[in-house]
Simulated scan of single mutants.
Amino acid sequence: MIVTDIEDAYRESGALVHTLALRALGSVEEAEDVVRRVFASAAAGGSLESRDLVNDAVDRITGDLERRVRAKLAALDDPALGVDGVTDDRAVVAEADRILVRASLDRLDPAARDLLDRALVHGVPRYELAMSLGVSEEELEARLRDALLALWHGPVPGEGHAPVEGLASRALGIRVADGGQQHIASCRDCRDAWRSLNNLVGSIARTPASGPMVAPRAGLWDEVRDAVDAGPPAPEADWREEARRDAARAHRNRTLVMSVALVAASVFAGLAVVLSQMLVEPEGDAIARTRLEDPRAGGSEAGAARVLAGADGGEVIVVDGPYAEYPDAYLELWIIPASGEPVALGQLTSGRYEVAVPASVGTAVGATLEISREPWDGDPEPSGDVVARGTLR
């Protein structure tokens, strides 16, 4: 593709791309960067049509806005950095549509442009407009229809479909007496054409929301040409993929922090067991003791238990370990006598638990202690995973 083609496209559409980027980004520097990227990409094999250039600008502007907002959220240490869009890309698309319509109107015959402007933008009643022009309302409606079709570039339904003139009249709210409504209701091509024409009518009515075109500075074309001469630009990263990576990275960081916290909690719980044994309960007072092991982790240490003499002559079991409440389950302590069925001793909700040995068990010496993680299903029998086990000796 020769530079002359790019220059012609720049003359025709450079102001459109520049104005859209300037309104959306609010920065001349960023707007000019979008212009350079859009035309360099088009020179590498893209389309030079105005609508395609503006649509490419919409994608790039939306990505720039997404990255800008996400950078601010990250600076605020906002944890909600998901992959959903955080900017109103629909507003950028709507503004692009207004700019394209305004540009098409500017290229339209002045009489047809004035007619659409007075009828659709300023809402002059058609009978008044017809009187001021000295024509009948039927002639006025035909002129409005022809002016709308001169702006429209959508696919025209072929033979056997509703006439495009009738679809344009319907879009303008002009009464059509040729029938065809049942066909339009069941024909996708005719419905799509009517919808496109109807949307164009709405876009024309909204054009005053756009300000005047802002042409790029004179020296920007030289920079665009340099960007074209430099060869195809590197493909831009999709902000959605970047957001997915950011979200995954944040998840890994949160997981690492939680893991460190769990390890620290286990260490402190272990120290608490040792200190409680050294400072609170002398070794000589224990009738029996055991090291609790986790059978799921190859017998790794999961706390400790001992049996003390109670004040009433009975026995008291003291369990120390890294235990806590769970949102979806609970920890149950069981004692299993040498010959007998498991007996529930209550739920563990913290790192230290004391419970009297039931009279039905007799002595805890020689019995096995188990701690199981039970689901909240109302079943009083042990059915969950055993997380700790030891025999009191």
Score class of each variant (00 low, 15 high):
residue 4 T to K: 12
residue 11 R to S: 09
residue 15 A to C: 11
residue 15 A to F: 14
residue 16 L to H: 11
residue 17 V to H: 02
residue 21 A to W: 00
residue 27 S to P: 13
residue 28 V to F: 05
residue 35 V to S: 10
residue 35 V to A: 15
residue 38 V to L: 08
residue 39 F to Q: 13
residue 40 A to F: 10
residue 44 A to M: 06
residue 48 L to C: 12
residue 49 E to A: 12
residue 49 E to N: 11
residue 53 L to H: 07
residue 54 V to F: 13
residue 62 T to H: 06
residue 63 G to M: 00
residue 63 G to F: 00
residue 66 E to M: 09
residue 71 A to D: 13
residue 73 L to K: 15
residue 75 A to C: 08
residue 76 L to A: 15
residue 77 D to S: 11
residue 80 A to N: 04
residue 84 D to G: 08
residue 85 G to H: 05
residue 85 G to M: 08
residue 87 T to P: 04
residue 88 D to W: 15
residue 89 D to L: 10
residue 89 D to W: 15
residue 89 D to R: 15
residue 94 A to F: 06
residue 94 A to H: 07
residue 95 E to M: 05
residue 100 L to K: 15
residue 104 S to Y: 01
residue 105 L to C: 04
residue 106 D to I: 01
residue 109 D to N: 01
residue 111 A to Y: 02
residue 111 A to H: 04
residue 113 R to H: 03
residue 114 D to G: 03
residue 120 L to H: 01
residue 122 H to F: 02
residue 124 V to P: 04
residue 128 E to H: 07
residue 129 L to I: 04
residue 135 V to M: 09
residue 136 S to T: 14
residue 138 E to H: 13
residue 149 L to C: 03
residue 152 W to H: 14
residue 158 G to V: 10
residue 160 G to I: 11
residue 163 P to R: 07
residue 163 P to K: 04
residue 166 G to Y: 02
residue 174 I to W: 05
residue 174 I to D: 02
residue 175 R to A: 12
residue 176 V to Y: 10
residue 177 A to E: 12
residue 177 A to N: 10
residue 178 D to K: 11
residue 181 Q to N: 09
residue 190 C to L: 08
residue 190 C to I: 06
residue 197 L to I: 02
residue 202 G to C: 04
residue 202 G to Y: 05
residue 203 S to Y: 06
residue 204 I to N: 00
residue 205 A to W: 01
residue 212 P to K: 14
residue 213 M to N: 13
residue 213 M to I: 15
residue 216 P to D: 12
residue 218 A to K: 07
residue 218 A to E: 11
residue 223 E to R: 09
residue 231 G to L: 01
residue 234 A to H: 03
residue 237 A to R: 02
residue 244 R to V: 07
residue 258 M to P: 01
residue 259 S to V: 10
residue 260 V to L: 12
residue 264 A to R: 13
residue 265 A to Y: 10
residue 265 A to K: 10
residue 267 V to K: 13
residue 271 L to I: 11
residue 280 V to P: 03
residue 281 E to G: 09
residue 283 E to R: 11
residue 284 G to P: 05
residue 285 D to R: 10
residue 289 R to P: 04
residue 294 D to N: 15
residue 299 G to I: 09
residue 302 A to I: 07
residue 304 A to L: 02
residue 304 A to Y: 03
residue 310 G to V: 04
residue 314 G to V: 05
residue 314 G to D: 05
residue 315 E to A: 05
residue 317 I to S: 14
residue 320 D to S: 11
residue 320 D to K: 09
residue 324 A to V: 08
residue 327 P to D: 13
residue 327 P to E: 09
residue 337 P to W: 02
residue 341 E to Q: 12
residue 344 A to V: 14
residue 345 L to N: 06
residue 346 G to T: 10
residue 347 Q to W: 07
residue 348 L to Q: 14
residue 350 S to N: 14
residue 353 Y to N: 06
residue 356 A to W: 03
residue 358 P to R: 08
residue 360 S to P: 03
residue 370 E to A: 03
residue 372 S to F: 01
residue 376 W to M: 09
residue 376 W to S: 05
residue 378 G to P: 06
residue 384 G to H: 08
residue 387 V to W: 03
residue 389 R to E: 13
residue 391 T to H: 10
